[in-house]
Structure formats: structure tokens, C-alpha cells
Design a binder for these strands. Structure first.
Lengths: 261, 261
DNA sequence: ATAATAGTGTCTCTCAGACACTATGAG
DNA sequence: CTCATAGTGTCTGAGAGACACTATTAT
């Protein structure tokens, strides 16, 4: 089969981003308001076309920087950089009514940003709890009880444009399963964090409540998982907690077990 | 950004297949001989262009059927059907010197086929041990000792064309990790199989030796994992073994632990 | 008989889960 | 003081790993 350009139909290749963070005890995704048809006015995932000279990961990192100003650490600059990995590719004919678009979705895990929406070219980006976008029960009410049930009514999901709801669901499931056996949950935390802050990340992502004592014993007892950095903090209230940073151990064995599975 | 076709460069979208099976106690991949430049005469993964009207999984299933005659069970026909799932997407500029090609790789797990190469359109397809293709130590010598070291000399890897070596490595790693926590290893077995045959699949894929008694206790003690089908067989020699088929439980909790990690 | 694999029972050690208890801050 | 979170110790039950032992075929 010779590579005659007329042999294959015109494909557009894009990257879509599932950018997750933990805000106020809830797992949130970055969404942008669509300014044109189709699905005008609906929420969608950020994304854009892949350029001729860049690879897929670079395209995703560029789009992320354009939309949020976040930098990713491609095995480079440590500290306050987001984690980026390829998620999956979506290419059903008709997923975009205008033409054949194959979208390579990427997953980004970011610490909570003080600036929710540094304006990119997309109009109006914001963080939205994934429970509001998916109508997923486990994605709601992950708080410690203070504001349980304070979110919108059950099932009142705001559907995303195109097939972005499915992409988001796949990304959330990837994040939920991956923090089981890796130190990736630290990507949701600032460079230095406490054991309690890391535990609250697990609780928000999984939508469960974990025993603080057993969690502390587990993560501090796994060699290379957490590295004490020396200082303490009282930003959570209560007794001062030691500060840690993520250790070099990226794989967690035995894994952290997600309760009630 | 309007969808002007001149806005984006010409992309070709293909599917590549990592088709794995277990033959003679070794994990093997389906490879085809390239008939044209570039990389003429080298081994490559099977694959082809995605057509206008088909989605990505359909394209992969079609290519698989063309090359091997295998059918996949897309939640449909049970029994003697291969498992197919999307693996990852590879789109570096320059991965194909002729033009910009984005390839959506898929992973296929198939039982050992009596007919190694039903001729498709590709010239000369064959099963090759993944250890010969990757130069990976754990991929070699997974046998019980009878033919240990009978394969090619150490490090004598036969590199695949393009970036197919990396794609294969990713597919093998996916298969190795996924059989830990799912019943996917049964996809390497015929519809009815014994506990010993399933154990030899794990041993071949992981390149380890497992304790037969503990393995038996583990897999038969997990509810829904194996369903006894009634008969027995002596095709492995020794005492007749019960025949099972894969149960409905697709997730294995707690997981099967890969030794020496 | 031997050789092969199938399958059961038993022991030990590790670890997850539950929870009592102490430590140290803010108000 | 109370209330919050941090951190340690202890018990128990489930399960992985090791391995003795029996069962059933082929040769």
C-alpha cells in the first residue's frame, strides 16, 4: 500500500485535556465554555489541534500552558509542576459533526491553583466538581460531613459537549485507580505537604473516608514513598504536622487498597 | 477557531496491533515482514489505515481479522474470541519518514492458534517470542527448564521497524500488569482450560515460576473467577484435571501478586 | 514400579483494619 | 479548659508463601 495522500480521508488530530485537581475536598475538572456551534454555551474539555512539528505530549503541554499557565515536568523541572500522561484516543465517526476528528486525550493532575482561570484564548474556564459533570454518586459528598449534601441535587449533572463526558469519566477512573499503586496522589499536593493533606487527596478522589492512623502508618512505613523535609506546619489546625515531599518511589507495593470494592 | 481544512496539516491515522499469545511456554507477538521501504525486509507490527466510516476499535478488529482470521468479542459472541483493547497512540513527527502518521495501537490477547499465519494481504506473518524482539531478559527462558537457553543468544534482539519496538514493549507491559488484577489471562487460553494451563500462562507472561498449590488455591478460592465446566482432561499428562471456563468476575481482588517486584 | 501433574492441609509471617491512647497546637 | 489534628501502640483476621502429603493418570 503506497502512501498516496488521496488514499486516506482527511483526519484532524486534536488533543483534549482532562485536568484534575482537588479543591475544598472535592475532585474538580477544568472546563471551558464553548463560544461557537456545535454545543455553543455548553461546557467542554480544553484542547486544540496538534501542530505539524510537535508530538502529542508537547501539544498537550502547550494547550495546558495556554489555558492555565501550568507547566508539566517531563522528567525535568521538579516542584509545583503538574503530572501529564496520555489517557486514550477517541475517534468515532460523527463524534464531531463537522468533520472526522481523532482526539488524543491526556490526563493532567495538578495541585490546587490559587488562580482558578488565568484567561487563555478560551472564554471562561473554571473548575467544576466532577460529580456535577458526571452525575456520579461517589464523586459527591467526599467531605468530612461539614458540607455533605450541600452540592446540587442528585442526578443534576451538567453534560459536557461532544463525547467529553465519557473522556472525563475515563480520566477520573484512571486517576482513581492509579493512585492505588503509585505515588501519583502527591501530584495533587503542593511541593511540600503533610500526611493529612495527602490523605484528604485520597479521600476526595475516591470519595471515601480513610482512617487517619492507618493511613499514616501505611504511607510513612513504605520506604521511598515520602521524604521528610524537616519543617512543620499548622495550616490544617491542630498539632503541627511534619512536612514531606514525594519520594523517588513511583510504584507502591503493596498497593493502597481502595475500600469497599 | 473555525474548522477550515487548511488549518490543520495532513494527518494519516492508522491502527497498529500488538497481538500476543502464549506458545510453547513463551509469550509471542505477531509480526509481519515489510515488503517495501522504509525498513524493507524488517519485521513490523500488523496494522493499516483507519477508514472514513469506521471507529478505531472496528479498524483494529478488521485488521486483525484480515491478518489472522481472529474474531474479537466486543461484548458479544463468547468463546474462542480474542480480547481487544486500545493500548496507546504514537504520533511523533518523523516516526514515519514519508509523512505525519498518528498510529492508535491496540492490544490483542489471543489463545494459541493452530494456524500460525493464515495469509492476509501482508507477506509472511509469524509468531515471534517477545524476548527475541525486545532483548528483554524476563521475556526469555520462562520455560520449566527443558529448553531454557535454547533460544537465541542473549541480547540478540531483532529490532522492529519504525517505533514498533516501543509499542510492543508497552503492550507487553500492559498485558503483564493487567493479568495481575483481572481475569484477562484466560484470554490466552482455549474456552475450556485447566488450572495448570492458566498457571503456565502466568508463568510465560511474567517469566517466573509459580507454586502450583498456592496458585490453585488462589484462583479456585476467588468467587466468580473460574467456573467449573464439569469435564476433565489429561492433555497435560498426569492426573486428570478439572476443566474451567472464565467466570464473570473481570476484576480480581485482592490481585494476583507478581513475584520479586 | 516410576514419573508426571492435580489437588488438599497446615504452618508462619506480613499486613490491613479497627481502635485505645498520647502529643501539641489554636481558640 | 475544649477542640482540632498528629502520631504511636496493640489486637485480630485475612491471606500469601512455603511445603508435606495424598490422588490419579501414563508408561
Amino acid at each position: 500500500m503506497p502512501y498516496d495522500p488521496s488514499d486516506f480521508p482527511p483526519f484532524a488530530v486534536t488533543v483534549d485535556l482532562v485536568v484534575l485537581t482537588v479543591r475544598r475536598h472535592a475532585l474538580c475538572a477544568l472546563t471551558v465554555r464553548r463560544g461557537e456551534e456545535p454545543h455553543q454555551g455548553q461546557w467542554a474539555l480544553p484542547g486544540g489541534f496538534v501542530r505539524t512539528d510537535e508530538d502529542l505530549a508537547s501539544a498537550a503541554a502547550r494547550e495546558l500552558a495556554e489555558e492555565t499557565g501550568l507547566r508539566t515536568h517531563e522528567s525535568g523541572n521538579r516542584h509545583s509542576a503538574a503530572h501529564l500522561e496520555q489517557l486514550a484516543t477517541y475517534g468515532d465517526p460523527g463524534r464531531d459533526p463537522r468533520m472526522r476528528v481523532v482526539s488524543v486525550a491526556h490526563l493532567v493532575l495538578a495541585p490546587d491553583l490559587p488562580t482558578p482561570t488565568p484567561g487563555g484564548d478560551a472564554g471562561g474556564a473554571q473548575w467544576t466538581p466532577v460529580g456535577d459533570l458526571l452525575g456520579d454518586e461517589v464523586s459527591r459528598g467526599a467531605g468530612t460531613g461539614t458540607e455533605a449534601g450541600a452540592t446540587a441535587g442528585i442526578g443534576a449533572a451538567t453534560p459536557l459537549a461532544f463525547d467529553h463526558g465519557r473522556i472525563l469519566a475515563d480520566g477520573v477512573e484512571r486517576a482513581r485507580s492509579k493512585i492505588e499503586y503509585s505515588s501519583l496522589a502527591a501530584a495533587f499536593c503542593p511541593p511540600e505537604f503533610t500526611v493529612g493533606e495527602l490523605r484528604r487527596v485520597y479521600e476526595a478522589v475516591w470519595g471515601v473516608v480513610l482512617d487517619p492512623r492507618n493511613f499514616h502508618r501505611k504511607v510513612t512505613g513504605t520506604p521511598g514513598f515520602l521524604v521528610p523535609v524537616g519543617g512543620t506546619t499548622t495550616r490544617q489546625g491542630g498539632r503541627p504536622a511534619q512536612l514531606f515531599r514525594a519520594g523517588g518511589a513511583t510504584v507502591l507495593n503493596p498497593p493502597m487498597l481502595r475500600p469497599e470494592v
